[in-house]
Each structure stands twice: as structure tokens, then as C-alpha cells.
Design a binder for these strands. Structure first.
Lengths: 113, 113
DNA sequence: TAAACATGAAACCTTTTGGTTTCTAATACT
DNA sequence: AGTATTAGAAACCAAAAGGTTTCATGTTTA
């Protein structure tokens, strides 16, 4: 059982361009909501909601410090996406394609496991 | 200039679970709409609309053959996603982290390229 | 202690999304 | 020629998404 409680999934979380910008912003520095929202052309509350969604998807973490809540990137949350992608890489990666056709061909090691 | 006309972007295209299933289904075999839609618990028209979105995002291609339209995966469309992800990999990949701190440190090969 | 600050919750609104059913057009079969 | 088949277009609808403003609550700080 994984620790990440995924109410919103990663795919949906990164679908929104604002949220992708948020990830980008939070990648290097952790920062509180008010600071974060100063980078965006929308209300603080709206940004806060995006942060919530990112948090639920396991892409950022929140840490309360006094009256402020600091958010920062949690890159591990993107691993799920990487795994998903990995499956499709075989379809464009020549090396993987070669391996695939080798494994699937009938003229090698019949009946052997 | 790229050939992919991206009206819908990849991020949004893969956000929907039905569309991810479609990609999965079309990864191995190309097939016409009626056959495709038989795998899904919704109308043919609905599936058709999902296919359109995938197509606009450059994730599938359509080929008209007689009265049917055959769809298949266009894996290259996922490269954009891979590139996006690559940036974030540095944040969880130890090797990349090590490289990063090395490159950023001031005590190596100053002014040398 | 009172005022200011940081943030999330609530209620609300508009647009987008994911689905439906019906209609139209093109192609294939008999 | 006439009927079936394949698929997209149109019109429509309910629910979700993305935003707003206002309110409540906890935390500083003057």
C-alpha cells in the first residue's frame, strides 16, 4: 500500500497549464501561498485551490509554519506518469522495438523459459 | 516548425481515463471506430469525440479506408510529455542531482568549456 | 489587546467537458 | 436501384472545472 492518497490523479492534475506553472515555480523554492499567488493573474483563493489539487495528486507538499503554509514540489509524485509513459516508449524507441520483435519472433528458443 | 497541429494539447488529452484506455487499445492494433467503441460502455459518437481529441493532440492518426476510419496510436505525440517530464526527473534522480550540484558548484573548471 | 496578516471554507457563477440522441452523408453489398 | 453499414455533425444536457467574492479562523506584531 502506497502512502500517496490520490483523490485527484496525476494526469488530471497536470492537465491544467496554471498547475504546470505552479510545479515549475515550486520546483526550486518552497514558498507560502501569498507569494506564490503573486506570480499568477488570478485570486489567491484560486491559486490555493490549484495547490490543493496538486497536493491531492501528490505533486506538492504543504508545511504549516506559523500562519503561513509553505508549498513545495514533491517530484516523486511524477513517477507514476513516468511509468505510464515508459510503456509507450517502446513504440518509438528503436532499441526497444528491436528487442520486442526479437522476443516475439518464433525462431528463438521455442518453449524455453 | 513542427508538423503536429496541436489544437488540444497532450496534457489535456491524456487527462481523461477513457482516452488513456483508447491509447492502450490502439497501441497494438489499428482499428475502425465501430470496433473501437465496442470496447467502451458509451455511445459510438462519444468514443468518436474522444478519438478526435486524441487526434488533435497528435496521439493517434486516422486513415480512411472505404467507409471506415481506422485509428492507430501515434506514439511520437507522447514525446512532448517525455520532455516535460525529463525536467522534473532531476529532482528525484540521484545521479542527475549529483550532476546538477557538480555543475552548479563553483569549484570546478572555472571558465572552461 | 487590538489590528493586521495568511489562509482555507462557502456560496455562487460561467464555461468546458463528457455524454446523449437524432440526422446526414458517404460507401458497400445484394 | 435500394438497403445496410460506417462515421461525423448538430443540438442538447448535466456535471465538473476554474474562477470570483465574502466570511471565518488562527497567528503575529505594534
Amino acid at each position: 500500500m502506497t502512502t500517496t492518497s490520490t483523490k485527484h490523479d496525476v494526469f488530471q492534475a497536470i492537465a491544467d497549464p496554471t498547475r504546470r506553472e505552479l510545479l515549475n515555480l515550486l520546483a526550486e523554492n518552497e514558498m507560502p501561498v501569498t507569494v506564490i499567488s503573486s506570480y499568477f493573474p488570478m485570486s489567491r483563493t484560486a491559486v490555493s485551490k490549484h495547490l490543493r489539487i496538486l497536493s491531492e495528486a501528490g505533486l506538492v507538499t504543504e508545511q504549516k509554519v506559523g500562519r503561513e503554509t509553505r508549498y513545495k514540489l514533491q517530484p516523486e509524485g511524477l513517477k507514476e506518469l513516468k511509468h505510464w509513459l515508459a510503456y509507450y516508449e517502446q513504440f518509438w524507441d528503436k532499441k526497444l522495438l528491436a528487442l520486442k520483435s526479437f522476443v516475439e519472433s518464433d525462431n528463438n528458443l521455442k518453449g524455453d523459459i
